[in-house]
């Protein structure tokens, strides 16, 4: 299930806690996924069509799912711009196929 996935090691903030958890953020040609860093189990997968918008900063990366999910998904990473460009590239490919 992880064939063709680009992985980024990021840190997730646990809800209600001040603890950061290592996590793998996977990007494929048509989805973004949360993957367990140790077991490589896919915890959650979002098709790119459910991502309303995203934002990269030097220290973070955030996904906004609009109507599909109430809260943002935000992680700490210094690779936000790379994740952003990879997603943008895959979306460009999807758009060109139409």
């Amino acid at each position: 299930r992880t064939y063709g996935v680009s992985f980024f090691l990021v840190k997730e903030k646990m809800k209600g806690k001040n603890k950061l958890v290592p996590r793998l953020l996977g990007v494929t040609k048509d989805s973004v996924m949360r993957v367990d860093e140790k077991t490589k189990e896919v915890l959650q997968e979002w098709p790119l069509t459910t991502v309303k918008r995203w934002a990269a900063s030097p220290k973070s990366f955030t996904l906004d799912f609009g109507e599909y999910q109430e809260s943002y998904y935000s992680v700490q990473t210094t690779e936000g711009e790379q994740i952003s460009q990879l997603i943008a590239g895959y979306i460009d490919i999807i758009l060109k196929k139409k």
Binding site: R53, A55, S84, Q85, A88, I91
Partner: peptide, 16 residues
């Protein structure tokens, strides 16, 4: 990035 607007850091997804 082609065909995409950047406003306050957010990139809008055209296939959403």
């Amino acid at each position: 990035v082609m065909g995409r607007s950047r406003e306050s850091g957010w990139v809008e997804n055209e296939i959403y």
